[in-house]
């Protein structure tokens, strides 16, 4: 479905990606892991078109989308839940969701989509007329995911959805992500919480300083790479909370 080939991207003189290639098939859930600065967000930015890649190709459903504008990639069916949630704080929950539906708006199905979001995230119904900025961190994350889903994406990309959330809320978000996957959404997940992410994904890519270090199933990854050492140089805790 999505195929990234030999992608190079840079910020001014600093090259952030040195030839990254990855692939996601329809219906898959794939994790993109790596430490801070490894190039995960840069990869997402290049896919969405926020950043113009220096070199390489990105094809989505057989169509070249490198150098497309962000507004056209979302119309094509790629939706991003940005890092730090980035909800519109001064807009109400309702308005946030309405903008989420902007790319592929159809009056007839808007109401049913909204109802679906209320089922997935009942809290959003309660907060419908409140300003997004007044929501708690977890609620904002739900709003950000709901907003991304409102465009009916074929591919949903989540950039560190558990960042800054309590463990209980993190569990809830991860359950939700695997729920979305089970409903058939293709998902690319960028996560700091590698252990947790590996529990729910089909495959994973490991990025280090702008190039791919490893790709394969979670089991292979766990076997071949000491994840704790990749991130922190060792952590003996059972539930290795890794930080970036």
């Amino acid at each position: 479905m999505l195929k990234v080939q030999d992608l190079y991207a840079s910020y001014g003189a600093i090259t952030a990606l040195h030839g990254v290639s990855l692939e996601i098939a329809e219906g898959e859930i794939v994790a993109l892991l790596g430490v801070n600065g490894a190039g995960k967000s840069t990869t997402l930015k290049s896919i969405t078109g926020v950043l113009r890649p220096v070199k390489g190709s990105i094809t989505f459903l057989g169509e070249e989308i490198a150098n497309r504008s962000p507004e056209s990639t979302v119309k094509k069916g790629i939706s991003l839940v940005p890092e730090g949630r980035d909800i519109f704080g001064s807009l109400t929950v309702e308005e946030n969701l309405r903008l989420g539906a902007y790319a592929n708006y159809e009056r007839a199905r808007y109401k049913t989509d909204l109802e679906e979001m209320f089922q997935l995230f009942p809290i959003l119904k309660e907060r419908f007329h409140q300003a997004g900025g007044l929501l708690s961190g977890g609620e904002q994350q739900m709003l950000a995911i709901a907003r991304a889903l409102m465009s009916r994406p074929k591919l949903l990309m989540l950039d560190e959805p558990s960042l800054g959330l309590s463990p209980a809320m993190t569990d809830q978000i991860f359950d939700l992500i695997s729920g979305l996957h089970q409903r058939g959404t293709t998902i690319l997940l960028v996560e700091q919480n590698a252990e947790r992410a590996l529990e729910i994904v089909d495959r994973a890519y490991l990025l280090a300083t702008g190039s791919l270090e490893f790709s394969g199933t979670p089991d292979e990854l766990k076997r071949k790479v000491d994840i704790a050492s990749v991130y922190l140089g060792g952590d003996d805790n059972d539930h290795c909370e890794v930080h970036l």
Binding site: A13, G49, R52, R68, S69
Partner: peptide
């Protein structure tokens, strides 16, 4: 060979 250090940074943006 270093980035142009004139005032302001260019924001990368697709056409």
């Amino acid at each position: 060979n270093r980035p142009d250090d004139g005032a302001g940074t260019d924001v990368v943006e697709p056409a």
